[in-house]
């Protein structure tokens, strides 16, 4: 098992020209995924490291084409900026039964596997509801370390992940596809609120045009309900035929240039919120473990027999718990 003792050496290796650089980067990402305490060391060591210029979150219903679209975006990005590196973090759910996972997003991006300027990392949610953990932040910082200019985070848009991805990404794209439920469902699912841009994929399929109009109407309706003047137009693309992808990339670039000034302080605030959440989660786990350990049948008997009051018992147990937590 790798520990934080190895972090400085791995960091040095990961930014070197040595053939083992990608091995070191992969290792650092595992440290981030495997332990939140080690991640704290890693984040501390990377405080001054470069960060990606753009972090793009991609979310949307299963099968809407997020991975295929990511693949198309990689191709377009590599054409547009031949000397820049791009990173992908692809998150898939762990099985609640076995704890295992099938990480199947990469299979759609395999054409880029041996391009040294493309780094793809698949992550499993490992029991975290939203799928995005402090570990994801660590993986993202390592992407920055190795010089990724754009990082795409693909997460499956069910449960809570779409709300978590906006906490870590600078901008979030929601991918929709015709035949994936009507627009009312889409409004209900709350996906509208998380999107900075909306992509209708599978433009090659017959009802794409109609679906796109429906979504555009829904977006206009929502904007006016919120009193917003800015109307967001959905992008109609086909990952299969590679249509609309260059325009999409261009739009991402324009959006980023407009927003970049805000991003840096937003990133700090988001990181702060995320670390606070992790600390609370960690504290809750420790309290739960400590609670299991202390005997509380006795005091309950005392309450039942009237020897002590609920308030005094609670007070004593809280003190006892506090003394047990480091």
């Amino acid at each position: 098992m790798i520990s934080h003792q190895d972090i400085p050496a791995l960091i040095q290796d990961a930014c070197s020209e040595h053939p083992s650089w990608s091995r070191a980067a992969g290792r650092l990402m595992s440290i981030a995924e495997n332990s939140s305490t080690e991640t704290a060391h890693l984040l501390a060591a990377l405080t001054n490291a470069a960060e990606p210029r753009i972090v793009l979150g991609i979310t949307g219903a299963p099968g809407s084409g997020k991975s295929s679209l990511t693949n198309s975006l990689i191709t377009a990005f590599r054409q547009q900026y031949p000397e820049r590196r791009i990173g992908v973090i692809a998150i898939d759910p762990s099985s609640p039964f076995s704890g295992g996972a099938l990480l199947g997003d990469r299979v759609r991006m395999m054409n880029h596997a041996d391009d040294p300027l493309v780094f793809i990392r698949s992550s499993a949610t490992r029991g975290n509801m939203g799928g995005i953990t402090l570990g994801t932040l660590g993986v993202l910082r390592v992407m920055g370390l190795i010089g990724c200019d754009l990082v795409i985070i693909e997460t499956v848009g069910v449960g809570q992940s779409e709300f978590e991805v906006i906490e870590i990404a600078d901008m979030t794209a929601v991918v929709l596809a015709p035949g994936q439920g009507d627009t009312i469902q889409f409004l209900k699912a709350g996906l509208m609120e998380v999107g900075d841009l909306f992509i209708i994929n599978k433009a090659d399929s017959p009802d794409a045009e109609r679906y796109c109009t429906e979504v555009a109407n829904a977006l206009r309706y929502l904007a006016s309900a919120k009193g917003s003047l800015e109307i967001v137009q959905p992008f109609l693309v086909s990952a299969r035929l590679n249509t609309g992808i260059l325009q999409l990339l261009e739009h991402i670039e324009i959006f980023s240039q407009r927003e970049q000034a805000n991003w840096l302080c937003k990133r700090r605030a988001k990181m702060h919120a995320r670390i606070k959440r992790v600390i609370f989660e960690e504290a809750r786990k420790q309290i739960e473990a400590a609670f299991e350990a202390i005997a509380y049948t006795d005091p309950i008997d005392h309450i039942i027999t009237g020897q002590s009051t609920v308030a005094t018992v609670i007070d004593r147990l809280v003190k006892q718990l506090a003394s047990q937590i480091r």
């Binding site: 099985s95 295992g100 099938l102 990480l103 990469r106 596997a113 041996d114 793809i120 698949s122």
Partner: peptide, 30 residues
């Protein structure tokens, strides 16, 4: 599938891959 059911995280790369693609993927995925 049987490895996933046994609790492993399995990265599936699909068919007809080159040794270069396999090795680069294995390293990035650690």
């Amino acid at each position: 599938n049987i490895l996933r059911a046994a609790g492993y995280e399995v990265i599936y790369t699909g068919i007809r891959k080159s040794p270069e693609q396999i090795v680069a993927s294995a390293i990035q995925e650690d």
